[in-house]
Design a protein around this nucleic acid. Sequence first.
DNA 1: TTCAAAAATACAATCGATTGTATTTTTGTT
DNA 2: AACAAAAATACAATCGATTGTATTTTTGAA
Lengths: 341, 341
Amino acid sequence: MSKGNKITIHDISKALNIDSSTVSRALNNSPRVSVKTREKIQKKATELGYQRNSLASNLRTNRTNTIGVIIPRIARHFFATVIAGIEETAYEEGYNVVICQSLESLDREIKIMNSLASNRVDGILISTSMETSKFDHIKSYIDNNNPVVFIDRPSEAFPECSNISIDNFKASYDATKLLIEKGRKHIAHFSGPQNIGLYQERKKGYMSALQEHNISINKNYIFESILSEEDGISCAKKLLKYPEIDGLYSANDTAAISAIQYLKTKGIQIPKQIAVIGFNNDPISEVIEPSLTTIHQPGFEMGKLATEMLVHQIKNKSDKGIHHSKILVPELIIRKSSENE
Amino acid sequence: MSKGNKITIHDISKALNIDSSTVSRALNNSPRVSVKTREKIQKKATELGYQRNSLASNLRTNRTNTIGVIIPRIARHFFATVIAGIEETAYEEGYNVVICQSLESLDREIKIMNSLASNRVDGILISTSMETSKFDHIKSYIDNNNPVVFIDRPSEAFPECSNISIDNFKASYDATKLLIEKGRKHIAHFSGPQNIGLYQERKKGYMSALQEHNISINKNYIFESILSEEDGISCAKKLLKYPEIDGLYSANDTAAISAIQYLKTKGIQIPKQIAVIGFNNDPISEVIEPSLTTIHQPGFEMGKLATEMLVHQIKNKSDKGIHHSKILVPELIIRKSSENE
DNA sequence: TTCAAAAATACAATCGATTGTATTTTTGTT
DNA sequence: AACAAAAATACAATCGATTGTATTTTTGAA
């Protein structure tokens, strides 16, 4: 017993002198087993401390009732909310969830995909890493007729795949427009890696807003980085070379926040001298002084929608060709860092 | 091929007219297969797009090379750092990690344990939920000779089990002592649920510091809650009924931070009127004004150590009786919220 | 009481990989 | 050339549960 020898249906079968197939059916509440027998079996099962071996079951049925999730980093607020949405829907639909973080490394992403694939998860939700410019690992998984839904970072490489994302262009356009409307004339942009479509869009939205308001684009005002905390500081340093800059739109909150803190130490008044807008609505954005105007992405809803799509694909593998995608509209949250008074 | 019929070793076996046992050994680099044959097999395997079925493999070998992790909430900074430590060590040791969050719900915790157990993870790292006062689910898992290591929230119910935690008493004692040394005479405490040992310890440390400095304990100054953001505000409200209070030690940062924000709106000067110390070193604690003095728990190290212990247990199931535990010393990080000038 | 239909249960193959044992092939020594 | 030892490969059982088919038992109508 406590020797670690797990109880199997065969042990129950022997103990009651009932065939293991009947035991299996009883434990699965099959109507093919009489109520009397079923109860006898279930009683014996708990008595012996039986616990189903999912490995065996999954091997036989060729399903795991498990969804794999690959995201860059679970600690990031946005992804944490996405996960919450995923788990809620998955739970409702009777699926388990395996969460894996690529830490923005392609190498890890590939290893994770292989592991999930070899463990035969029923489908994968993925937000690709910043490094991901090759897609062989995803392609071979999809080619093998496995369901995949992209989250937040849709991949141009798989136009036929479902993906759920937000309108980055519009959000950026609106944020930049707000700064312009507040009278800011020289607006800088902290931009992310341009191999990621989402950061391209954010830059485009910024540029488009300037153009449409007849403000010429100054390339010197665009600072590209991976938007880490350190990048926020170093970009802020560079930004100070242009004293005319009176506005900043950062493609994420992390960089915006560390920039604000750095600028404050340099005696710059926020928002009086430089108005700032971030992206993501991280919890810190509410607490920092001044509180940060930012863009809220509906992560929870995205997670829910993506999971619904994936589950649909899992259940209807046939119509996999159909392209179901959704682009949600993020919300501009106006706080003090962008206001004149 | 793209019909979703996965390639198995038997397909390779047939294609090359080599027995499947040899194929299996070749793919596992067994020395029992000649180099020539092995290369032929591996070439064919990649050619056919073979991918091992871990379900079958794990069923046969009775090992999954996977560690299950159950924690209350992955989004919490402390747990995020613990996970980072777990993943790093697990990765080095060749284990996969499955991360699950109980969301502080016993019901979910039980479901997760069953799922991990039935998927035959090799061992479990757990930080129990706030609701967990019954331990049957953990007991039966342990009784079945499965390795478990407790993290952060050691369980008195399993003195024979390994656990890795911090010295909550000392950390609290030191924090309270600091406030006393700064001349604070009326120190309040935001305390957590007392069914959790860790919060008991934090309260004891607080009380002990007061006693040893000849400050009488005023029960009215102790506010118990689950230390959520809302609790921070409501406890701060109650605290204002005692205008003599000039210091606050909160058992977590979340409540401390929302309290500070509330108190600021009421015109209370922090730290001048009330000095504040939190617990956890959440990222926000650095950004809030005034920056929050707090206690840093070595989450990363805890995750690493716990994983090392668990892996050791997995590899040496025999000496499971041996009790390996470690209590780490957290670090008091002094920022502005506790300083007089 | 008889017997066909329905219900309950048993039989046996299967999922895909692993592994102890048996057999065949190769090697090298005399 | 003969043959034992070593190397390489094949055979076959196994992990634990599921499931289509076959068999037995029960039910109830005539």
